[in-house]
Design a protein around this nucleic acid. Structure first.
Length: 595
DNA sequence: GCCGTTTTCGGCCCGACTGTTTTCAGTCG
């Protein structure tokens, strides 16, 4: 059983306990354990086999360790099955519907006998919900809309799509009356590959006019709420945008708070508590003797000196984000790292990584031309790369097996080389490498004969068919391909397409260790639909000393600019310049490639 | 359920908004 599956089952058990009204901290314990497991590099399957002590891991105690062992050894968890029997299974979907949480889900089931999403929809339409205690017309309507958005949206917005909505909206908000500063926080600022919603922060003395400006944005399809400090709207695309309006003194604290991640914030708050401080979106406060530190439900403390919201204690920091980190004894942490994946510990030891930047890249090693399915000629691609200050590029058109993309056979490949040579003569100052994106056939052999492989500058291999092989067979296929002595780069390793096609199933662990051993570079495909490798894979690659290259897989000149999504993903994977081969000058780069 | 060189018991991050209520519960982030 894979880590993701163990994590899913524990998460689901947490969901059931929540619906049953269990102690919320116990529920959280299951979520925490699931999170640790999901993000763990080594399969728990192996750890259990080796008899390793799991209780050393964060959030894994005696009980969780026993659960994990049971799952690995028997493939199921008695506690989980028992829990699932106790509630109608579809009730678990209820809590993913916006506006519905565990309490209302339980109430609907117990008092109205509703157990499926479609029955819930029917009950809303018949107006049966509004008769329940604590429910009313509005909640009923919200749930109905929630069902629709749950059904239609399902997926999140790709970061590149979000950029298209956010950039104009940000420019618009900067023109709001009295606004001093606008920043976008949330997973968008952490540059996560997909975002669920957008958090915008505005500094303004007077909130009213800014909120009015916000809800009047032409792209707004629906205004969900518009209070004094917070408003929520939906754009026509269904993208949710939250606006928070803050005083200048709180800006840094709010930026940190709303950038998240939630897990990162929790760690920061704990550090604060240790120092007698309290961190909220309003600032960092020194907690006075005898003052309560926990904000209980409905507790409204007196206004503090700076009049920054309902808080107890003396304001000590909050204007800039770095002040907040400083107050808890840390250097500023780049947003891409804020996932509680070791960045707090690294910051404490002054060992944060120097993350790669866009300007570090000197070449792009996967792109297509009109020779296969690209839209621009080799010359146009080369000129465009030179304009981006690259020292080198590789033209990597498809091999013949990918016939839908106009893959090249041996004869056309030879002709293409002639053209590359001609173009090279016309353009000094940039090296055009002869490459190919060679298909890995279903048996792991390569779609190009050895004699030609010998003559290529860049041999990049990738999977384009038979995505559904059994994992063991898929792993074997990939390993066989990588073991071919001429292979230098494994392109878009998992083959996933965001929101459309999941990753192919194989043993990433084994492939990474094979790549490390052989010196094969793993590609981080910068295309925002792919972003493959994923952040956790990159962290693992870094740990194992696997070489990484960042490529756009451009099919036209404009695609070359997508490289920044690759750099952002690399930053999320803790990569520095030294981990990425195509930051090297041409000569060193060629030497560093496997040959 | 997890966790602990100030604690092995008693904590566990914190606040806004809405809707349905007359003081708060539920949800969300």
């Amino acid at each position: 059983m894979e880590n993701v599956e163990i994590a899913r089952i524990l998460d689901e058990l947490g969901d059931v306990l929540e619906i049953q009204g269990e102690n919320p901290f116990r529920v959280r314990a299951y979520r925490n354990a699931a999170r640790t497991i999901r993000g763990h590099g080594t399969p728990f399957r192996k750890l259990v086999e080796e008899g390793a002590d799991l209780t050393g891991l964060p959030g894994i105690g005696k009980e969780m360790a026993a659960h994990i062992r049971e799952l690995v050894e028997t493939g199921k968890l008695g506690r989980h099955e028992e829990a699932l029997r106790s509630i109608p299974p579809e009730l678990l979907e209820f809590i993913r519907i916006p506006g519905l949480g565990p309490k209302r889900a339980k109430q609907l089931w117990e008092e109205l006998g509703i157990t499926t999403v479609s029955a819930l929809q029917e009950a809303c339409e018949q107006g049966r919900l509004s008769r329940l205690k604590g429910f009313g017309e509005k909640i009923q309507k919200n749930i109905l809309e929630g069902i629709e958005s749950y059904r239609s949206q399902q997926g999140r917005f790709k970061l590149s799509d979000a950029d298209q909505y956010v950039l104009p909206l940000k420019a618009y908000m900067e023109k709001a009356p009295g606004v001093e500063r606008i920043e976008v926080a949330g997973s968008y600022r952490r540059r996560k590959e997909t975002v669920g919603d957008i958090d915008i922060l505005a500094v303004a003395r007077e909130a009213g006019p800014v909120m009015e400006h916000f809800v009047a944005y032409p792209g707004v399809a629906k205004v969900q709420s518009a209070g004094d400090t917070r408003g929520t709207v939906f754009l026509g695309s269904g993208l949710q945008v939250d606006l928070r309006i803050l005083p200048r003194e709180s800006f840094g604290a709010a930026l940190a708070y709303f950038t998240g991640s939630k897990e990162h914030n929790i760690r920061i708050r704990r550090l604060a508590i240790d120092r007698g401080l309290r961190v909220s979106e309003y600032g960092v406060f020194r907690v006075g003797k005898g003052a309560k530190t926990a904000g209980g439900r409905g507790q409204k403390g007196g206004k503090d000196e700076a009049d920054l919201g309902p808080s107890l204690g003396r304001f000590v920091a909050g204007r800039e984000e770095s002040e907040v980190y400083k107050a808890v004894g840390l250097p500023w942490i780049p947003p891409e790292l804020r996932e509680d994946r070791g960045e707090i510990e690294a910051a404490q030891q002054n060992a944060l990584p120097h993350l790669i930047e866009l300007r570090d890249l000197r070449g792009d090693l996967q792109m297509h031309s009109t020779w296969s399915d690209g839209q621009n000629t080799i010359e146009e691609m080369a000129v465009a790369c030179k304009a981006r200050n690259y020292e080198y590029l590789a033209i990597t058109d498809h091999s013949k097996a990918v016939s839908v993309a106009g893959g090249l056979d041996a004869e056309r490949l030879r002709k293409q080389w002639k053209e590359i040579e001609k173009v090279a003569e016309r353009h000094e100052g940039i090296r055009i490498l002869k490459g190919m994106e060679i298909d890995i056939l279903s048996d792991g052999s390569l779609d190009l004969e050895d004699a030609l492989l010998e003559k290529l500058d860049i041999v990049l291999v990738a999977v384009h068919s038979k995505f559904n092989l059994p994992p063991a067979q898929q792993t074997e296929r990939i390993l066989k391909a990588l073991q071919h002595p001429r292979v230098q780069i494994f392109g878009h390793p998992t083959g996933r397409i965001l929101n459309r096609r999941g990753p192919i199933a194989f043993d990433m662990d084994e492939v990474l260790s094979c790549a490390a051993e052989l010196g094969v570079a793993m590609e981080l495909n910068a295309h925002p639909d792919r972003l493959d490798l994923m952040d956790l894979h990159l962290m693992e690659a870094r740990r194992r000393g696997v070489k990484v290259v960042i490529n756009t897989d451009a099919h036209r000149v404009e695609d070359l600019d997508l490289i920044r999504y690759g750099v952002e993903q690399a930053r999320r994977g803790w990569l520095g310049r030294e981990h990425v081969l195509n930051t090297l000058p041409l000569g060193e780069f060629l030497k560093a490639l496997r040959r």
